[in-house]
């Protein structure tokens, strides 16, 4: 499944809805669907807000597929990319009271595997669907 959206946060829900719809007949547990939705929405939001800097002329491309017992989600923006290792841990004394910075952290915790391309503008996430 491929989805191509403009950089506007009103489209975030469409991406997660389409992804969950594609998984609806596969008997995936509600908890896992929650995680997949959350991570897809966080990654799309990052692509729109941080990657494309909210520039509505730039696009966000999403690919989602199931291979074996895993779902794979790739999200690519048209921004300059960033170093994902530069995102600080939001659990520390300096981060716990901050009102941002938890999205990527949640993605890393809730998905089984998270990778970026070298430029840092494409994230690939995977998660086992069963049990």
């Amino acid at each position: 499944m491929f989805i191509d959206i403009p950089s506007d946060i009103i489209h975030i829900r469409k991406v997660s809805s389409d992804i969950l719809s594609s998984l609806s007949s596969r008997g995936v547990a509600e908890d896992k669907l929650f995680d997949i939705r959350l991570c897809a929405e966080e990654a799309v939001r990052n692509a729109i807000v941080h990657g494309n800097q909210g520039n509505k002329r730039l696009r966000v491309k999403v690919a989602c597929w199931v291979d074996g017992d895993k779902v794979f989600i790739e999200i690519e923006d048209e921004g300059e990319g960033y170093d994902p290792k530069s995102v600080p841990d939001p659990r520390g004394d300096n981060g716990i009271m901050k009102e941002s910075g938890r999205g990527m952290f949640l993605i890393r915790k809730l998905m089984d595997k998270v990778d970026f391309n070298e430029k840092g503008n494409k994230i690939r996430m995977e998660k086992k669907l069963w049990p």
């Binding site: 929650f34 939705r37 959350l38 929405e41 966080e42 939001r45 009271m97 901050k98 009102e99 941002s100 938890r102 999205g103 949640l106």
Partner: peptide, 16 residues
């Protein structure tokens, strides 16, 4: 039924 990182941030802001 659902909270994302923006929701967590909103609750942190209210607490602060």
């Amino acid at each position: 039924s659902y909270v994302d990182s923006s929701g967590l941030a909103t609750l942190v802001g209210i607490l602060k």
